[in-house]
Nucleic acid binder design. Structure first.
Lengths: 193, 193
DNA sequence: AGGCGCATGTAAGCCGTTACATGATTCC
DNA sequence: GGAATCATGTAACGGCTTACATGCGCCT
C-alpha cells in the first residue's frame, strides 16, 4: 500500500524494455545494460546511466523488486525481479493503443539536401551507407539463423525474438536496395566534384 | 566579425533541416514550421516551439540572416535567408562522416514482448499497424507521383526530394510486408485471448 | 460571433548522451 | 603491472514534447 497503486504508473519506453527483459528472467542492472546492447540493441539502445535511475523509478512504482546479493562492485549488487503489478502493466501496454512515433531519419534528411553537394561526394556517401547497412544486415541474419535453429513454437518468447529480428532484416534489406538504386542513378548525374 | 567564426559552429540535425529548407528558398519561421510538417515531416518532424529558438541560434552563429517584414502577428514577422557561411556549413555537413544513429524502434520493441499477450491481441495490433503503414505509404506514393511528374534532372533539388521519398516508400513497403507475414504466422498461434 | 490561419515567442519537464567517479577480481 | 570485466551510481547538458501566451484579419 505504500507504493502508488492509485495512479496508472506512466512508464517510459525504456521502462517497458526493461520490464520486457525482466519478464524473461531476473537480472542485475549490469545484466540489463549488457542485454540492451545485444540483442535488444538491434531495436532499442540504452546506456547504464539511463538504466540505473529507471530501475529505481520502476521500483518506486512497485513494478520491480530487488534483493541484494554478494557482488564484486564497490556498491551492493542488486538482483531485480518483475512483480505481479509489473507484469500487468506490461500486458496492458501491449493491449493499449500505439500512437505513431514522429518520423526522424537522418539518412533521408541528408539525401534531401544532397543536391548541394556534387555527384562524387554523393557516390562516396551512399557507398559508405551501403556498407554500413550490409554489415548490420549480416549481424541480423546471423542472429535470425541462431534463433531459427531453436525451432521456436509460434507465439513463444523465442519466436517473438525471431519476429523482431525479421523486421530488422527486412528494413535493412530495403535500405540496402535503396542504396544500390541510388548508386545506379548517380551514374547519370552531372559531374561537379 | 562579431559572430563566432572561430569555432566550427556545431549545428544540430534540426539546424541542418532548416538550413536545407532555406537553401531552397527564403522563409519565415512559420513557413518553415509548415514545411517541416510537409513534406519534410516524412523524415524529420519538428514543432514551431523548437524552430524559433533554433533559428535564433543559427543567426547567432552567422548561418542565417533575417529582415523584418510587414506581417499579421502580434510580433514583427521575420524573413530568413541563408548566408554564405550557412551554405558552407551545410555542404561540409554533407561531406562529413555520418556516424550511425542509435536504433530505437517502438514497433520492434513491442513485437519482442508480444508473447506476453495472447494471439487475439497480437492479431489486432498487427492489423492496426498494417493499416497505419498502408495509409502513410499511400501518401508517400502520391508525393512520389507528384515529384516524378516534374521530370527532375538527376541530381537537382526535386530529384533529391524524389530520392528521399523513394527511401520512405521502400521502408514502408518493407514494414507492410512484415505485417502481412506476421498475420499469416499468427494463424498458427495457440489461442489464449 | 466564432473559428481558422498567420505569426511569434516562453517554460516545465522528460529523455538521452557524455563524462565523472569508485573499486574488487581475473586474465595476460 | 596493466587491462578488461563486474557493478553501481551522479552530474551537466542538449533535444523534444506539451502547454501557455498574444493578437490581427478573414471567412462563414
Amino acid at each position: 500500500m505504500d507504493v502508488a497503486e492509485s495512479t496508472p504508473a506512466r512508464v517510459s519506453s525504456l521502462g517497458h524494455a526493461l520490464l520486457g527483459l525482466l519478464a524473461r528472467r531476473e537480472a542485475t542492472g549490469y545484466d540489463l545494460a549488457q542485454q540492451m546492447r545485444h540483442p535488444v540493441g538491434y531495436f532499442w539502445e540504452a546506456s547504464h546511466s539511463q538504466i540505473y535511475p529507471e530501475l529505481a523509478r520502476l521500483e518506486a512504482a512497485g513494478l520491480v523488486d530487488h534483493t541484494v546479493v554478494a557482488g564484486k562492485g564497490p556498491r551492493p549488487t542488486k538482483r531485480y525481479v518483475l512483480t505481479a503489478a509489473g507484469t500487468r502493466v506490461q500486458v496492458s501496454w501491449l493491449a493499449g493503443v500505439m500512437r505513431p512515433e514522429p518520423n526522424r531519419d537522418l539518412q533521408t534528411l541528408r539525401t534531401w539536401s544532397l543536391w548541394l553537394a556534387g555527384a562524387g561526394l554523393a557516390r562516396d556517401w551512399v557507398g559508405e551507407r551501403r556498407q554500413h547497412h550490409a554489415e548490420v544486415l549480416r549481424d541480423l541474419e546471423a542472429e535470425r539463423a541462431e534463433l531459427a535453429a531453436e525451432q521456436p513454437a509460434p507465439g513463444d518468447r523465442v519466436w517473438c525474438n525471431l519476429a523482431a529480428v525479421e523486421l530488422g532484416v527486412r528494413s535493412r534489406q530495403a535500405e540496402l536496395a535503396w542504396c544500390d538504386w541510388m548508386l545506379t542513378e548517380i551514374e547519370g548525374w552531372p559531374v561537379s566534384g
